[in-house]
Design a protein around this nucleic acid. Sequence first.
DNA 1: ACTTTAAGTTGCATATTTATACTTTAAGGA
DNA 2: TCCTTAAAGTATAAATATGCAACTTAAAGT
Lengths: 243, 243
Amino acid sequence: MSPSKELVDFLNSGHLYMPGISIDCVIFGFHNRQLKVLVLQFKSTDGYALPGGFIRKEEHIDDAARRILEERTGLKEIYLEQFHVFGDSERGRDDTHRKFSRANGIELEADHWLLQRFLSIGYYALVDFSRAMPTPDVFSDTCQWYDLAGLPDLILDHNRIVQQALETLRLMLDNKLVGFNLLPETFTMNELQALYETILDKPLLRANFQRKMLSLEILERLEKKWTGKAHKAPYLYRFQDRH
Amino acid sequence: MSPSKELVDFLNSGHLYMPGISIDCVIFGFHNRQLKVLVLQFKSTDGYALPGGFIRKEEHIDDAARRILEERTGLKEIYLEQFHVFGDSERGRDDTHRKFSRANGIELEADHWLLQRFLSIGYYALVDFSRAMPTPDVFSDTCQWYDLAGLPDLILDHNRIVQQALETLRLMLDNKLVGFNLLPETFTMNELQALYETILDKPLLRANFQRKMLSLEILERLEKKWTGKAHKAPYLYRFQDRH
DNA sequence: ACTTTAAGTTGCATATTTATACTTTAAGGA
DNA sequence: TCCTTAAAGTATAAATATGCAACTTAAAGT
């Protein structure tokens, strides 16, 4: 098979980026009581990977992460946070990139920029599942949501990166109180509780959860939501604008 | 002035390291109810900087940080943790390194490896003030403890790096419970409380602090300490060996 | 109307945290 | 010797938070 122009251009674009450093994004979504993560599937190979990319020579690393997030989801102004640098000494020196290129019609030179050791800065993002538009990059067939529990084997240390992102998210849930992009604009108390239960992976008591959330005074109660169900209608809530 | 051999060797050693990435260490100590930080003063200039260094091409980033820590303090097996990557797009592109080299007798070429943009991975370490042996590197006149409150102006964004290390330390104090290298082998409850008060920068109630610490079951109570003071003698404590 | 169901709320026992008071002990001085 | 002082150690009370269960409310089906 003959290589695509986009692939050739990319493989020749090493001079645009900081060498030896990449960014990988763990993009969390929430749907049907399940945490989801965006995963790419490479063209012509069976490799799965986190959305990632490189840092332009004149670009702030946070801007690079935001750019990558927007390219994969179309979303801007999302909660996005750096959580760890992955720096094994042999990281990226396996044959992942060589195999991918070969499967797409290009044999990489031994000193190609993609074949060197790479550090990766991990970022995690929380996005509204219903608003994200998963978009493959030019090297991928698909960009899809996967249940956290049903993730495929990912390349390199990407499974570990997801794991550590999740641990960081759990820690942050107690401390910060993330300006929750994981839910749509308005939501019921039940939906919020389901999100917490999914992230923390443990059941919470309904009465206590409600009391706690309301006492934090970060929620705004709106009109009731019509459900059509044979029971009392729940209120809708929205996160208060932070000054 | 003619440049030293060490300096020349170092300036020619760029090929040994990952390009564009450095490590900066915020090394905390504790003495006289004050948090201290190790700071280097460059030779022949008035520049102050955090101990830092570069990552060898085949070195895990955590090993690099440990190596730098040991070179500056002589200490091994210290609590050391990565806390943030600093990645402004212009970071390292100012004239800090050029001025330093010029003051020491070397004019850097425009494309010298030290003059490019650098990311820096921030690590913080907690060390026993009394056991550390501050040791300047070949580019520094002194390596000294400075009170956190009385830090000089540091190069680049190093003051901000210290600030963020401190914030991370405060957060971790609640969650983890850091295997405290900041104190000597044995200490009184009062000394431990003073440390907490200094890190958190707020007073704590003596009675409650004692109860809390003892309930954690991480302390071992030893014999009493003779103070010669006109009051009850305090017990000495030690952190329990972890399994 | 009566039933079913889930939302919203309330009460209370228990646990944890915060604040205050009391007891103990080492040393100094009358 | 005995009283005083000061800080360590301990106990108690008050205020909050959490766990658990029950009660009330409202929307829709029968």
